[in-house]
Design a protein around this nucleic acid. Structure first.
Ligand SMILES: [Mn+2]
Ligand SMILES: [Mn+2]
Ligand SMILES: [Zn+2]
Ligand SMILES: [Zn+2]
Lengths: 145, 145
DNA sequence: ATCTCAGTGAGACAAGGTATCAGGTAGTCC
DNA sequence: GGACTACCTGATACCTTGTCTCACTGAGAT
């Protein structure tokens, strides 16, 4: 079964219709290599209007099919989710490569904070930025000894 | 010395002129209770054009006078900084109250990740969301026993 | 007095996203 | 099959959060 079929079934199981525009958006998402904006998608996806692309991305986000990636400049990108559960990202600011982090690194912290702060903590944002090994060695090549 | 004077000196020390529009923006910032948008500021601040308000907020952010607060919906607000150093926030999604967290809770984590991931980690975003004690007890009042 | 340059505001522009609304179409019930 | 309905669609207007352009101003240096 193709990824597209699998996602179609997932939508149908949730009561959503799998229409040609939605199929087009999903296909475009599946073709994206790394993280992308809705505009990227629009350029690679004839067969769905702008509003529908935004609506479908929102849908896919709610279903956990894509995840939102917050870049260091504050802009939001999207990305085909590699993990169904809650997780965070390590983004290379050189090449844009994204590493999904296995587990939520702050769950202990959240528990601790819940106790000490008096707040009931219900959510958080966490993203890391840096340079991947490949981009680091590239930089080194350019630097005189 | 008033806060306004102190900030004026800080600007001058960095080589910036303290002009009436800048003074107006700073005064408006000092009057804000919690976090605010530039639009909030514009409504409470005659004496500076929109572009200047944005420019001044950017300046104050660079100087560490205000900090950016990322809300759970992804929108960016600003806030008079209570701590000069790098820190994170705990935001009440009920009343909007912001708690500044003393230290960066993920610095150990960053070090650990730097080793295990092969990335050189240079930055991160971290914000927590929840309900403060006051908002929690309010909710309880509304809930039937 | 003149020069220079940081700062200014009006307004254009841009990105990213939502609201509106008339029209299309899939599925359902008879 | 025909009628109904609920979902879905795209064009378009609109909104927010900024940045850019550009002619102008005004402080301060010489
Ligand atoms: Mn992810
Ligand atoms: Mn802060
Ligand atoms: Zn890289
Ligand atoms: Zn609260």
């Amino acid at each position: 079964m193709s990824d597209l079929e699998a996602l179609s079934l997932k939508l149908e199981a949730r009561g959503y219709r799998v229409t040609p525009p939605r199929r087009a958006v999903i296909a475009a998402v599946l073709q994206q290599a790394g993280h992308f904006t809705v505009d990227d998608l629009l350029h690679r996806c004839r067969g769905a209007g702008r509003a529908t692309v935004f609506r479908t991305i929102r849908l896919l986000t709610e279903l956990g099919v894509v995840c939102r990636v917050l870049l260091d400049d504050g802009s939001l990108h999207y990305r085909l989710s590699q993990r169904p559960q809650h997780h965070h990202h390590l983004v290379c600011t050189g090449c844009g490569k994204v590493q999904d982090l296995d587990d939520c690194a702050v769950s202990d912290l959240v528990r601790e904070l819940s106790g000490s702060s008096g707040y009931e903590i219900e959510g958080h944002w966490l993203e890391f930025y840096g340079h991947c090994a490949a981009c680091r060695s590239e930089v080194l090549v350019g630097v005189p000894a």
